[in-house]
């Protein structure tokens, strides 16, 4: 359990944001934390879609249930949050 800041680059938003999460959060929980600061504020909700997480520039998404601490994501790394079909 440790505070783990990541950088959110949320699809369709205009700015990178600081998102403090916990090292034991799942990737889905990290996505929800990032969405809190973008969706419904400057990004229109997309009902029926899920938000997947990938490293900036990567094609593959991280597994949704993986713990942050189980991945090789580093603190203050920029992650892309992308709307995907559920």
């Amino acid at each position: 359990m440790a505070m783990f800041p990541v950088i959110s680059n949320f699809q369709y938003d205009f700015v990178l944001q600081l998102v403090p999460v916990d090292s034991e959060n799942s990737i889905d929980e990290v996505a929800a934390a990032a969405a809190y600061h973008s969706v419904g504020r400057r990004v229109a909700p997309q009902p029926g879609k899920v938000v997947r997480v990938r490293r900036q520039g990567a094609v593959e998404f991280f597994p949704r249930t993986a713990r942050l601490s189980e991945t090789d994501i580093k603190p203050m790394e920029t992650l892309e949050f992308i709307f995907c079909d559920a």
Binding site: I7, N9, Y12, F14, V15, L16, Q17, H37, Q56
Partner: peptide
Amino acid sequence: PETLPIVCNMNQLPICAIPGKGWNVQD
């Protein structure tokens, strides 16, 4: 806002670009 924007280590301004259909924001 409820968090901080990420600030560029050179210009000290938020890292930002085009949202919406032209989304090209990048670190």
